[in-house]
Write a protein that binds this DNA or RNA. Structure first.
Lengths: 150, 150
DNA sequence: GCTAATTCCGACCACTTCACTAGGAATTCC
DNA sequence: GGAATTCCTAGTGAAGTGGTCGGAATTAGC
């Protein structure tokens, strides 16, 4: 029942972009340094987030990444879904796929998985990047205080 | 964000044992047939569940497995924890390990993961095997009606 | 005591995913 | 032109998934 590091790293990277929102693009090098992540690996994740429409990449010198939407409009769930796929503990209660298993009418565990899925979605979709910024302890990044968007 | 088939298969097997609780041991062959699972694979899972104290194995002819506790006393969370490890979306909010990461005091995402963990635990621990039995649609296993413990 | 049924145990295996590293092409600012 | 940066693709070792297989130990019933 773990998310992979993809989701975790992605959230941390998006948090950095949210903190710098409105101040121009942030190069990956900076994000990787602040969050102590591999820059190369992060690059791949950002590619996925870009294709999902959550970030914009700006090439060239003085380039970097920035949020494609304001931090209030991006939920943690959006990021997780982009990087890890649909939020569902088992595939047969995947909301994004109308598949469903053949015996869903008489499956004794279906209700359980639906309840679990819904409670996970509730937490993840009700938390935005802006919320994360607000939640961040003051001593998290003293050098940012007063500058960031959040 | 998926549980592996271990957890899913385990729950389905435990559901079968719950349905037959009080009627003597159920051989794996029967469980595997009813739930359409690989008997060999199920064997491994039952070994884990036995070591966790959730089931008893009775060897020899007319042997099989039975719940080590009444179905009301075993939660879905117990089964998942036995088969998949602690219920925590990221390792640093694992309740069973006092580890925690070195920078937990100034981690902007910790609160999020704690909320997610708690909501998952709430659903999984508040559902017992007996609940699953009650929840099961009537047409699930008509041949069982009136016979089973639930 | 023999036989059939069953758990118990450990080894093995093909496949996929994870978490990266590496290298180079394209783009853009100065 | 040169430096910085995104973008893209390929490779890689380690781990996890989802099994299979063979055989030993135990037990009920004849």
């Amino acid at each position: 029942m773990r998310i992979s590091t993809k989701g975790g790293y992605g959230i941390r990277a998006m948090y950095e972009l949210a903190m710098a929102h409105g101040q121009g693009p942030v190069p990956l090098k900076v994000v990787a340094e602040k969050q102590a992540l591999s820059e190369n690996y992060l690059e791949q994740l950002m590619g996925t987030l870009r294709k999902a429409g959550l970030v914009r990449g700006i090439r060239g010198a003085r380039g970097g990444y920035e949020l494609a939407l304001p931090p209030e409009k991006i939920s943690v769930g959006d990021v997780i879904r982009a990087l890890e796929g649909p939020i569902a503990p088992v595939s047969c209660v995947d909301l994004d796929a109308e598949a469903g298993c053949e015996r869903h009418a008489h499956c004794p565990t279906r209700g359980l998985w639906e309840r679990l899925r819904d409670s996970m979605i509730e937490v993840l979709d009700s938390t935005s990047l802006a919320d994360l910024c607000k939640e961040a302890p003051q001593d998290a990044a003293p050098e940012d205080s007063g500058k960031g968007h959040c």
